[in-house]
Design a protein around this nucleic acid. Sequence first.
RNA 1: UCCUGAAUAGCUCAGCCGGUUAGAGCAUCUGACUGUUAAUCAGAGGGUCGCUGGUUCGAGUCCAGCUUCAGGAGCCA
Length: 489
Amino acid sequence: MYFCYSNYILHMSQRIKIKALLQSTQTDVEVTVKGWVRTFRNNQFIALNDGSTNNNLQIVVDFQNTDEALLKRITTGAAISATGMLVASLGKGQTVEVKATSIEILGDSDPEKYPLQPKKHSLEFLREIAHLRFRTQTFGAIFRVRNSLAFAVHQFFQNQGFVYLHTPVITASDAEGAGEAFKVTNFDLANPPRTEDGQIDYKQDFFGKATNLTVSGQLEGELGAMALSDIYTFGPTFRAENSNTTRHLAEFWMIEPEMAFYDLQDNMNLAEGLLKYVISYALEHNREDLEFLNQRLLEEEKNKPQNERSEMTLIEKLEFCLNNDFERLTYTEAIDILINSTPNKKKKFQYPVEGWGTDLQSEHERYLVEKHFKKPVILTDYPKEIKAFYMRQNDDGKTVGAMDILFPGIGEIVGGSQREERLDRLEQRMDEMGIPKEELWWYLDTRRFGACPHSGFGLGFERLVLFVTGMGNIRDVIPFPRFPKNAEF
RNA sequence: UCCUGAAUAGCUCAGCCGGUUAGAGCAUCUGACUGUUAAUCAGAGGGUCGCUGGUUCGAGUCCAGCUUCAGGAGCCA
């Protein structure tokens, strides 16, 4: 249904979303609202929320003229429908309220059993009741922001003529080396068919070969880009790593654009542009939610010692991110900075930075982003030994055209590269790294027929949501997180 | 997977050097009050102290193993 706010008010018989109502300037009209009771104060005031906004609508009940049995059923968590006059509020804390003429209980909520109380709950507890945590202010705000970010991602790419490409969720190639994959089979696991030498006989499996859930859509994405020019994927990705951290999930959503005729600079420009676009979109369209999350973070950090608190509030951090260019430097330059850094000289790093060639540890990345530059950093041109086979080899013979974007508090949010388009160089690297060329014949075909310079990257969607909402644990920014020992709900 | 820490009422936590009947705040229930903002006031109910074993006259407390959770590390997005 297409609508504007004034239309809303005219259709009195219809249910009105609370967001529209609170924005309305019209009062003294009869309205019907439906939602869930957050609290019922003083036998008189219902704080009603329907998820359209973080703010509650106050429903005033004439308790002296209302059936007592009905009043008893207005409990935290109950779904109700309320009809009454929208009036200017007599109390403080809200501009308008609804003076109810009738209240209907749509769904009771037994207060003895309903786990959510009108009080602060720990994020750990809410994680255990993830099916109900949407009903809290924090999670309502998080998932509205997540929604906006997802929409903005599509809008950013669509505005530039990118094609949204659906790469497969089930794949046969495990050659990418992007992490442990979950196996996909319809064998009876207790008794799988075996070959004569006792190996599991995947020829008899559903796909006639061993298959797994995708760990990346990149290789297929490249195939699309070699005809459509600019594509992006945005879908679920699966990693069977035994990762138990605040920034890893076994099932997460990843955005992977691939662009023909893009070099590494173009690639970085696109990634930085994307991040800034979606952040500004959220700031514009989710102001109230972000202000709530901003406040939540301030409250949380009150309990921390001064030196552990953020220098900027959440919203300041997001705005700062928009108003400053990301710092771009090479891996080699980063190593120089780290070697000469105070913590390295004072041996404060757990892993001392001794020289060129090793991968950066989290503490090194954090130093660069949070202490040295104090803004997002793009690191480029890593040693080829620590990067994937498909990255374009630089002329120096030791580095590749990789780029990682590091964000404060998150670490790596984007990982990408210019792709190696030269067949001989690519095959040579695959041989060196033990990647089976036969399995990836279709990938190599793009280098045989009309190869061209091209680039792409992967953006971890939940890490983006983590950054924008200021939350600390990735398990709190996806509705139902999957991680080792947990696939509840 | 490794390191550190934790697990006590529905939730958040206290419980000292091992010692009688395990406490508080909030929530819930009952009553009072009725323009409240996590309402307030009075009262009540609510516990296999994560699980299994061990030490001990005696274990919420000490020891071992396991499970789960949190934070950090690795793998990465």
